[in-house]
Every structure is written in structure tokens, then in C-alpha cells.
Design a protein around this nucleic acid. Structure first.
Lengths: 300, 300
DNA sequence: ATGAAAGCGCTAACAG
DNA sequence: CTGTTAGCGCTTTCAT
């Protein structure tokens, strides 16, 4: 009897109507991952690929669907808020927030569970976020350079409207000040390889005597090394980098290079777990900061 | 009176319930863009970035939301079919189909409007697709090399389980045969830069006398040039490439290079338009093949 | 245990 | 043109 029904189901290709189900359960069974960057940026930063994969896997395990949205410009914000508010998704993961991004506020006041990836610059008490220890990571890298005897360590800092950019610069500053052996040398980039290249060129011009560079992202470090090679220059110390996932480490084939590693998979996992808690009604603010660790390669 | 209602709406933050609306209208207001590649691939090929942006813009104009899904492995197929079948989306755009991908069949038999980006290898009559003229583009490129006097033109072909890979190899073969001046020289890559590099190295080993290379993708061309430079080799003729969007052209800064351009934006536009037609009940099979054009740079 | 019925929030069709 | 109502396909509650 049950079998004959099952048979009919597959015969007619019956599938429960999600809209009807949502109407009564008030759940959609999907979660949005919103990245506050233009497509070109999203698709050129390997960090996002790893996060998307990780989050997708975690959600699949909970039988939740992943909806990926990119918020290139503010015009898209309305769409996204509407989409979430409509009941299309049960929660939102927000990545790569910039300074005064209104998105988390809008979503929050619409009563939608939100978890941020990366501590935002203007941290409001209500937010739940997952971040890696950017300050600590940067400090680790710079302290390593100091220990190696470098006394003219420059940094290629990231955008200062982003939490990670600020934190990494903060870590550099703390380490430099604590050492008391030199003044800060700072150039800014936008986390991209091209930005790192430009910053390195400026650095070589304004401070030709730098003996080490701390880059605030893997792609900027790559750019810095390209610029050094193109200029036929070597710096006696090292290029160090943070913001660097294990899986990407292989791109840096040639030493000298010291890097600070983070686990992007762990970040995905935590974000999903926190979101799930929020969706289950847990209102506790329980943000997480993940540790980083230094991987130093010996200079050739 | 109306005003007081509007006021109450914004006061209470009322938003129409999409589930209830869908239940009666049988429309969800969103469209899925499914890419049959793992995240790492999707996020490293600039082609996808451009398509996603283009499709997103086109859909926004029609007031439709874009849901991006990546089908890394077959395990994800069920999820995607279920997601679409559930009524979550009104239609599906499928990108980067591989040989025997069951996805279009599954979706089609579930009665979901589907438009393919790129002519699939096993083309069934029911499919609607948008493609660029890969055969013509490849022919164009190879004919150009022949016209320049090259007589040992190799190709770095793409994966043969993909329509574009096969078509571009087909165009190369047609041109070489028609000229009757040489035999085919073929190495295969996977459309990636690393694949192009490996293929070029094999080529230099097995056919050290090649005087031109036709690469079946921009990234493989980039890889080929890297391999050539690393080997300290120059080929007298040219490296030509297809599958190359205008916006990416700038990456190829150094001649000699001839490229065949396509308009990715136009492709996005057509895909969305065709899908819209299908969603409006138009059952006509009206696939589109977009023209390509050659851009030759003079050798330095 | 199994079965009947109410109702989720909206749209569309129909009356007034 | 405005107002009322049936019903979309489920889940959950309540009665049998």
C-alpha cells in the first residue's frame, strides 16, 4: 500500500512544493552568502573560492541550500535585503564588509539571522562574526622579521575601510613600536596583486633601503615579489605575508618568504555553525577569533 | 487614506511573503545560474566572472534574482535538481557543460525552462543554447597564422568532453587540412594556465620546430607564453588564441599575439533573453551562435 | 494509531 | 471600480 504510493510518486515525478511548505513552516531551507565585492574581485581572490566551497559543504551537511550573491554596489543592497526579507533564505552570511556597509544593519533590523565573516570596522554589539587573528598574525610576521635582524621593515597595508586591513596594519605598528628600532614605513594597496606591485614600486623609490616587507595579503606579497624581480632588486631580509590559506601556500614557490597561515575551512565551518545557532533562536553574541600560525622558510 | 496604509507598512516593516505569493502565482522571481565546475575552477576563470556579472545585470533589469550554484561533482546534481524542481527558481541557466552531464536532461524532464551557455557535446534537439562561433573563431586564427607564412602550426586544444574544446580543435583541423601545407600537431590542456604551460613544454620537446601555436583558451595561451619565456625560446610565428573576452585582452601585454574576441556580455544578454522566452512558455528551439572577430597585433 | 480540518499569506476571479 | 472569497499545497493540531 505504501509502496504503491511511492511508486506513483516517482511515476508522476511528484516533488513537495517548497512554497507551500515554507508558508507554513516559515523556513526556506536555504542560506545566502553575500560578498560585498564586485564580481571581478570575487572571482580573482582565491580566498572566496575556498570559503564558498567550505560553506557549501557545511550547509549541504545540514541539508541547507547555498545561495551566492555579490553586492557589487549599493544598488544591489535593496535586492539582497528584499530577497532575504521575503523569506527566500533563513539566514545570511556576510563576507568582505567595507567600512560603513549598511547591509548588516538592514538585515539585522529586518530580523534576519546574520553572521559576518571578518570583524567589521564599525563593530556594533549585536553582530556575530568569525574572524582570524589578524592583529596577532601580523605581529607574528613582523616579530619574525625583527628577530632575523631586519631594521627597515616596511609594510604594504590593505584597505583601511576593512577590518582585516586595519587589523594587520595595527599588528605591524604594535610590533614595530615595541621593538623601538625603526620608524614605520607604510604603503597602501587594495589586497590585489597589481596593488601590491604598485606599492612595492613606490616603496623602492621612497625607501630604497628597506630590508624586509610585510604584505597584508598573499596577493600583495606576490605582487611585491614580482615588482622586486622586475626591478632586479633583492631585499636582504624577507617578504612576509598574512592572510594566507594553507591551500594557496604552494603559489609561493620561491623563498625567502615567511607566511602566516589561517584555516579558511575552519572559518567556513564556524560561520555556518554560528548561523545555525542564530537561526535556532540563539541570541547570544558569540563571535569567534581563530588563531593564525607562522610558517617561516629559510632564506636560500 | 492610502498614505496611512503606506505609513503603517513602513512602520511595521511589512514585506509581502514570497512563499505565499509563489504558492498562488507559481513563480518565484528568481533564476539559477549553474556552473558545472568545482569552485576552484569557477573562481579562477575570468570568463565566469564576466558572465555572472552580465547575467546578474540582465536579470536585475527584469526584476529577477540570480542564484548562483556550482556543481562540483555529481553529488550536487540532486541538490540542484531538487532546488529547481521545488519551485525555488523559474528557470535555469547552465554553463560549462561537460560531455555526458545529466543535469540538462534532469531539469528538462522536470519541466524546468533551461538555457545552455555553450553548445553541449551531445546536443539533443530539445536544448536551447547560446554559443559563440568556436569553429569559425579557431579557423580565423589559424588562417591568420597560415597567411603569415607559418608552416608548423601546433594547437593546444581544450578538453574534448566540452563543446568549446571540440569545436576549437575542429576549426584548427579544418584550416590545416584546407591549407594542405602541414600535418596536425596537437597537445591537450584543460583550459587552465598551468595546463597550457605543460602542453607547451611537451610541444617544445616533441616538436621543437613549431613556428606558431594556436591555443584554445586565453589562459592556456598565457601559460604557453610563460613556458616559452621560461625555456628561453621564441617561436618565429605567433601565438594565437580564442575564447577571449574584450575585457581580458589587456592581460596580453606583449606581442606577438593574435586573438579572437567574443562578447561575453552579449552572451549573457542572449541567454537571459532566451530563458525569459522559455519561461513565458515559448517552446521554440531558438539557439543562437554569436560571431567572433580576429584582432591581430603586429609582431615586434 | 489514522483521518479530518484549519490555516499559513497571498492572488485572482467574481460580485456588488 | 472597490470588496469579498475561494483556494494555491502543504503542516499541524485536534478528534476519532
Amino acid at each position: 500500500m505504501r509502496d504503491s504510493v511511492e511508486e506513483a510518486i516517482s511515476l508522476l515525478g511528484y516533488v513537495p512544493n517548497q512554497a507551500a511548505r515554507s508558508l507554513v513552516t516559515r523556513r526556506s531551507g536555504s542560506v545566502a552568502l553575500v560578498i560585498s565585492e564586485p564580481e571581478s574581485e570575487v572571482f580573482s581572490d582565491p580566498f572566496f573560492a575556498t570559503i564558498v566551497r567550505g560553506v557549501g559543504d557545511e550547509l549541504a551537511e545540514l541539508d541547507l541550500d547555498l545561495v551566492l550573491m555579490m553586492a557589487r554596489h549599493a544598488g544591489r543592497h535593496d535586492r539582497i535585503v528584499r530577497y532575504a526579507h521575503n523569506g527566500h533564505v533563513d539566514g545570511v552570511l556576510l563576507l568582505a564588509m567595507h567600512g560603513d556597509d549598511p547591509l548588516p544593519g538592514l538585515l539585522h533590523s529586518a530580523g534576519i539571522p546574520v553572521v559576518l565573516g571578518g570583524r567589521p570596522v564599525n563593530l556594533s554589539d549585536e553582530w556575530t562574526f568569525v574572524d582570524i587573528d589578524n592583529v596577532g598574525g601580523a605581529r607574528l610576521a613582523v616579530e619574525h622579521l625583527l628577530r632575523r635582524g631586519c631594521r627597515r621593515i616596511a609594510t604594504i597595508a590593505g584597505p583601511q575601510d576593512m577590518g582585516s586591513g586595519r587589523a594587520r596594519l595595527g599588528g605591524y605598528r604594535t610590533a614595530i613600536e615595541a621593538a623601538g628600532t625603526q620608524a614605520e614605513i607604510i604603503e597602501y594597496g587594495d589586497f590585489s596583486q597589481a596593488g601590491g606591485e604598485r606599492a612595492m614600486r613606490r616603496l623602492l623609490e621612497t625607501h630604497p633601503d628597506v630590508d624586509a616587507v610585510f604584505a597584508a595579503s598573499d596577493r600583495m606579497a606576490l605582487g611585491a615579489m614580482t615588482a622586486l624581480k622586475a626591478a632586479g632588486r633583492r631585499i636582504p631580509g624577507d617578504v612576509a605575508v598574512v592572510g594566507f590559506d594553507d591551500s594557496e601556500a604552494s603559489r609561493f614557490s620561491e623563498p625567502p618568504l615567511t607566511s602566516v597561515h589561517q584555516s579558511t575551512d575552519e572559518m567556513s565551518r564556524r560561520m555556518v555553525r554560528l548561523l545555525q545557532a542564530r537561526m535556532d533562536g540563539d541570541q547570544a553574541r558569540t563571535s569567534v577569533i581563530l588563531p593564525t600560525h607562522l610558517v617561516a622558510r629559510s632564506s636560500s
